[in-house]
Amino acid sequence: MILFCGDPHGEFQRLLVHAETTRPDAIILLGDQTPDRPLAEVMGVWAERTWYILGNHDSDREEFLIRHLDSMPDRNLHARVRPVAGVGVAGLGGVFRGQVWHPPDPPEWTDRAEFVRCTRPAHRFRRGPALRHWTSIFPEDVRALARLHADVLVTHEAPTTHPHGFEVLDNLARDMGVRLVVHGHHHEPCHDAELFSGILVVGLGMGEVLELRQG
Score class of each variant (00 low, 15 high):
Val87Ile: 14
Ile137Lys: 11
His156Ile: 10
Ala113Gln: 13
Thr135Lys: 01
Pro83Tyr: 00
Val116Arg: 03
Asp151Cys: 07
Ala47Arg: 08
Phe125Lys: 00
Arg127Asn: 14
Pro139His: 11
His9Met: 02
Asp32His: 05
Trp101Ala: 13
Pro8Phe: 10
Leu77Met: 01
Leu148Glu: 14
Gly44Ser: 07
Glu62Ser: 08
Glu188Phe: 03
Pro38His: 06
Arg143Pro: 00
Glu194Trp: 14
Leu172Val: 01
Arg127Thr: 01
Ala47Lys: 11
Trp51Arg: 08
Trp109Glu: 06
Phe166Gly: 04
His187Pro: 08
Gly203Leu: 07
His18Lys: 15
Gly91Met: 05
His78Ala: 03
Arg124Phe: 03
Val181Asp: 02
Leu77Glu: 03
Thr160Gln: 03
Arg124Trp: 00
His156Gly: 07
Gly203Lys: 07
Val81Tyr: 06
Val100Ser: 10
Asp111Thr: 08
Ile137Ser: 05
Glu62Gln: 12
Val168Gly: 06
Val142Lys: 09
His156Thr: 04
Val100Pro: 12
His123Glu: 14
Arg49Cys: 02
Asp175Gln: 12
Arg14Tyr: 10
His78Lys: 04
Arg120Glu: 14
Ile66Cys: 02
Ile137Tyr: 05
Glu140Trp: 06
Gly88Trp: 09
Arg23Val: 09
Phe12Trp: 12
Ala146Asp: 04
Pro73Val: 02
Arg126Gly: 01
Gly98Asp: 15
Ala19Ser: 07
Arg14Phe: 02
Pro189Val: 08
His191Met: 09
His191Tyr: 10
Val209Met: 07
Pro159Ala: 09
His164Lys: 13
Met72Arg: 08
Asp36Gln: 07
Arg37Cys: 11
Val152Arg: 06
Ala79Pro: 10
Val202Lys: 13
Asp25Gly: 13
Leu77Trp: 01
Ala158Met: 05
Val152Gly: 03
Asp111Val: 12
Leu169Phe: 02
Gly86Val: 02
Ala173Met: 03
Arg126Pro: 00
Trp46Val: 03
Thr110Phe: 04
Val45Met: 02
Ile28Thr: 06
Leu15His: 01
Pro163Asp: 02
Ala144Thr: 15
Arg37Trp: 06
Phe64Cys: 09
Glu41Cys: 04
Thr22Trp: 09
Leu39Cys: 08
Phe4Trp: 07
His186Arg: 14
Gly128Pro: 03
Leu39Thr: 10
Ile53Ala: 05
Ser136Leu: 11
His18Ala: 15
Val209Ile: 14
Asp151Ala: 12
His187Cys: 03
Met206Ser: 14
His57Thr: 11
Gly177Gln: 06
Val154Leu: 04
Asp170Ala: 01
Ala79Met: 07
Leu148Cys: 09
His57Arg: 13
Glu63Pro: 00
Pro24Gly: 09
Ile199Trp: 05
Phe166Pro: 02
Gly198Ala: 04
Ala19Lys: 05
Arg213Leu: 13
Ile53Leu: 13
Val89Ile: 12
Arg179Val: 05
Gln13Lys: 14
Asp58Leu: 06
Gly88Phe: 00
Asp60Cys: 01
Ala40Tyr: 00
Met43Thr: 09
Pro83Arg: 09
Val178Phe: 04
Arg97Lys: 15
Ser136Ala: 15
Glu194Thr: 14
His162Ile: 07
Arg132Met: 11
Pro35His: 12
Leu15Met: 06
Ile199Cys: 03
Leu131Lys: 03
Gln13Val: 10
Gln33Ala: 15
Val202Cys: 07
Phe125Tyr: 13
